[in-house]
Simulated scan of single mutants.
Amino acid sequence: MGLQAYSEAKALIFDLDGTLSNSLPVHLATWQQVGDVYHFHFNPQIMLEMTGRATIDFARRIVEENNLQADPADLVKLKQQAFWDSANLLEPINEVIDIVKANYRKLPMAVGTGASRKSTEVQLKQLGIGHFFDAIVTANDVTLHKPNPDTFLKCAELMGVSPAECQVFEDGVLGIEAAKTAGMMITDVRPFINYGEWIHS
């Protein structure tokens, strides 16, 4: 059986990167661009381990692991600008977006992401799907990011639905952990999606 909304779900929450947006190859390429500037090799394994966290967390880890004499905030600025400039390369994950379209105006829906507000808006605009959602919670909207449950709990609050009645669609280990902690129904989208050349396994 394919991806579907559970009959008992009263609201749906979707992660963005790797769930609605096949953005991970673009993130990988733009982190590699940052590596070219700061002279480090970006390890793709970091993305598998940290998908869902804010970009500043990636930057701090990169600075530490590579012993860089650099401010992580500067890496973030360069990375985000490169990503925004590459928005035309983003592709939708249609298997998940079909769920969104099928439930539009039937159930309240939200995006709960570790991406910044601007990166979220850039992606939703590029994919033409922003109008489907009743609430959008980004890294700018909570203090504690995934694997903490705050992102998803904020989505539930904004939609006026109890956490136990929310179904979360996620591809990231940290996001799945956050949804579990929030007491929500969880759908791991990875078994249903063809990521092409991406490194998911």
Rank of each mutant, 00 (worst) to 15 (best):
Phe152Met: 10
Leu153Ser: 03
Leu153Asp: 00
Leu153Ala: 02
Leu153Phe: 09
Leu153Met: 13
Lys154Ser: 12
Lys154Met: 14
Lys154Val: 10
Lys154Trp: 03
Cys155Gln: 10
Cys155Lys: 06
Cys155Asn: 13
Cys155Ile: 09
Ala156Met: 07
Ala156Gln: 00
Ala156Val: 12
Ala156Phe: 04
Glu157Asn: 12
Glu157Thr: 12
Glu157Gln: 15
Glu157Phe: 12
Glu157Pro: 07
Glu157Ile: 04
Glu157Lys: 14
Leu158Gln: 15
Leu158Pro: 04
Leu158Asp: 10
Met159Asp: 07
Met159Val: 13
Gly160Ile: 13
Gly160His: 12
Gly160Met: 10
Gly160Tyr: 13
Val161Leu: 11
Val161Gly: 07
Val161Met: 09
Val161Arg: 04
Ser162Gln: 15
Pro163Thr: 07
Pro163Ser: 09
Pro163Leu: 12
Pro163Trp: 06
Pro163Ile: 11
Pro163Val: 13
Pro163Cys: 08
Ala164His: 15
Ala164Gly: 13
Ala164Pro: 03
Ala164Met: 14
Glu165Gln: 15
Glu165Trp: 09
Glu165Arg: 14
Glu165Cys: 13
Glu165Phe: 09
Glu165Val: 06
Glu165Asn: 15
Cys166Asp: 05
Cys166Arg: 04
Cys166Gly: 05
Cys166Pro: 06
Gln167Glu: 04
Gln167Thr: 07
Gln167Ile: 06
Val168Gln: 06
Val168Tyr: 05
Phe169Asn: 05
Phe169Trp: 11
Phe169Tyr: 11
Glu170Gly: 01
Glu170Asn: 01
Glu170Ser: 01
Asp171Leu: 04
Asp171Phe: 02
Asp171Ser: 04
Gly172Val: 03
Gly172Phe: 02
Val173Gly: 09
Val173Arg: 06
Val173Tyr: 03
Val173Ser: 10
Leu174Ser: 00
Leu174Met: 04
Leu174Tyr: 00
Gly175Leu: 01
Gly175Ala: 03
Gly175Ser: 03
Gly175Val: 00
Gly175Thr: 02
Gly175Gln: 00
Ile176Pro: 00
Ile176Cys: 03
Ile176Lys: 06
Ile176Tyr: 02
Glu177Asn: 05
Glu177Ser: 11
Glu177Thr: 10
Ala178Met: 07
Ala178Cys: 08
Ala178Lys: 02
Ala178Glu: 01
Ala179Lys: 05
Ala179Tyr: 07
Ala179Gly: 14
Ala179Val: 07
Ala179Ser: 09
Ala179Glu: 02
Lys180Leu: 10
Lys180Ala: 13
Thr181Tyr: 02
Ala182Ile: 11
Ala182Arg: 09
Ala182Met: 08
Gly183His: 14
Gly183Pro: 11
Met184Ser: 08
Met184Ala: 08
Met184His: 07
Met184Tyr: 12
Met184Asn: 09
Met184Gly: 08
Met184Leu: 12
Met185Lys: 15
Met185Trp: 08
Met185His: 15
Met185Ser: 14
Met185Gln: 15
Met185Asp: 04
Met185Phe: 12
Met185Leu: 15
